[in-house]
Structures are given as structure tokens and as C-alpha cells.
């Protein structure tokens, strides 16, 4: 293993994050605060408790997931897209680093960033509502798994994208809707039976459900299923990346 190489990529990527620390933190914190003000306080005050949890507390796990998903994808996709765009990818491609090492560097850094942001969102939420975490270790496990899977997914998007529009389109057109419809702001049991069935095709339902379980011990679907689905997604992304490097798809000519 070329650990110096992994470290170099990892540190380079994190440096980019810290260079723009204010923007990196400000936008997720502001948007989360807005959600809490609008949904938690304004609307939430009129909402009844869901499964015995106050509405404000109920949306905390979903909001954290929302941030982690979008940040993982955008950080990882941007991280590998930029060198492709600027041409500096030549150095990565000509370096004695394996595909695994490249992915470890980029995806590791992107996941780290979104974990840091996840913690910041957690602290922000504490500021607005009171809640506690029932299974902190499981919470951490879901957090790490999700950050990793979606950073891998973002990496794939970054390799696939050949323009800034493509870089934006999947997060905007697919991930954000799926997250909103994935039970961030409601329990899927509140939906009519037909839509409950439809929702089960949304993979993000499982993530949010599992994550919420680690907080409050309540879930829309079984925790085992949640974990399995996350694992399957992780595996799919890993296989895709393996294929990308094996064929040189959009990295080498």
C-alpha cells in the first residue's frame, strides 16, 4: 500500500474543505436552522407527537441525513471532477497509487467532511430542540456507513460527469426529492397505504428509518432491513468503482 499517497490525497481534499471553512459550514447550518424554525417551531407547534416524539425532535435524524447525503455526494463528486476539469488529474493517473488508494483518499476525505458537518448539524439541532440518542454506537455506525456509501456514489458521479450540469443534476433531480419523500419530515405510516408501498422503493427510507431508530428506538421499517439496504448500496457503489478503474472509464483515454 502507498500510504503516503493516500495521505497526500486525503490531506489535499481536507485542505480544500478548511480553506473554505466558512462556506462549508455556513450553508448547511443556515439551512438546518431554517428547517427547525419553519418545520420545528412554526408548524411543529401545531403537529401532534409522532410515536411519542415531539415533531421537532422527530425531524432531527432526517435533517442530519439530508445534510450527510447531499454533502457526501457534492464533496466527493467535486473532489474527483475538479482535477478532471482542470487537467491536474494527470498527476494522480501517473502516480504509483492503486484504484483502492485513490478511492480511499478521495472518498475518505469526503466522508470525513460530511461526518464533521453531521456533528455540527447535531449541535445545531440541540440548540433548537431537546432530544437524546438511545443507541449512540448504532447512530455512529449508520452515520459512517451512509457517509461512506454516498461519498462513493458521489465519486462515481464525479467520474461520470463531463460538465458542471451533470455534476449537479443527480443530487438535484434524484437525491433531494428522494430524501424529502423518504420520511425526513413525517413517518411513512402517515401516508395512505398505496403510497406507503411506493415509498418502500425509495432506498433513502431505509437509511432515515434506521437512523431514527438509533435515536428514539422507533422505525418505519425493520432495522435489519435498513442495515442490509445500506450495505447493498455500499456494495453496488464499490463494484461500480472497481469497474470504472478496471476499464479506465472516463479517467483514461
Amino acid at each position: 500500500m502507498n500510504w503516503y499517497g493516500v495521505k497526500a490525497i486525503y490531506r489535499f481534499e481536507l485542505a480544500r474543505f478548511f480553506r473554505t471553512l466558512f462556506q462549508s459550514i455556513a450553508s448547511p447550518v443556515i439551512s438546518t436552522s431554517l428547517y427547525f424554525i419553519v418545520f420545528g417551531s412554526a408548524i411543529g407547534g401545531r403537529m401532534s407527537e409522532i410515536d411519542g416524539i415531539s415533531y421537532g425532535a422527530f425531524i432531527v435524524p432526517g435533517l442530519m441525513m439530508l445534510t450527510i447525503l447531499t454533502e457526501s455526494i457534492s464533496n466527493a463528486s467535486f473532489g474527483i471532477y475538479m482535477p478532471k476539469y482542470s487537467g491536474t488529474i494527470y498527476e494522480i493517473l501517473s502516480a504509483p497509487v492503486s484504484a483502492l488508494e485513490i478511492v480511499l483518499g478521495y472518498v475518505g476525505a469526503a466522508a470525513t467532511k460530511s461526518l464533521i458537518l453531521g456533528c455540527i448539524i447535531f449541535a445545531t439541532a440541540k440548540f433548537f430542540v431537546s432530544f437524546s440518542v438511545l443507541h449512540p454506537l448504532w447512530m455512529l455506525a449508520f452515520l459512517v456507513l451512509t457517509a461512506l456509501s454516498f461519498s462513493l456514489f458521489g465519486f462515481i458521479i464525479g467520474v461520470w460527469a463531463d460538465g458542471f450540469e451533470k455534476l449537479q443534476i443527480i443530487p438535484l433531480m434524484i437525491i433531494t426529492p428522494l430524501t424529502f419523500l423518504g420520511g425526513s419530515f413525517y413517518s411513512i405510516h402517515m401516508l395512505p397505504p398505496f403510497w406507503q408501498k411506493v415509498t418502500l422503493f425509495n432506498p433513502i427510507v431505509y437509511l432515515i428509518s434506521g437512523f431514527r431508530w438509533s435515536f428514539y428506538g422507533i422505525s418505519d421499517v425493520g432495522v435489519g432491513i435498513s442495515l442490509t439496504m445500506t450495505g447493498v448500496f455500499l456494495l453496488l457503489c464499490s463494484l461500480t468503482i472497481w469497474w470504472i478503474f478496471k476499464t479506465g472509464y472516463r479517467l483514461k483515454r
Binding site: N2, Y4, K7, R11, F12, R16, S86, G87, A95, V97
Partner: peptide
């Protein structure tokens, strides 16, 4: 390489350190 492609926002010192690390 033929094209001038560098990380514009990086400092000279950190970019050469990066290269050395990248090459193991």
C-alpha cells in the same frame, strides 16, 4: 505535461509536498 495545469489555490510548498507524498 504540455498543458499548464496546476491547483491554482494551492501554495507552492504544499503542492510539491503533495506530489512527493502521492508518489509514495
Amino acid at each position: 505535461p504540455q498543458e499548464l495545469s496546476t491547483d491554482m489555490f494551492e501554495k507552492v510548498w504544499s503542492t510539491v509536498r503533495f506530489s512527493r507524498g502521492l508518489f509514495g
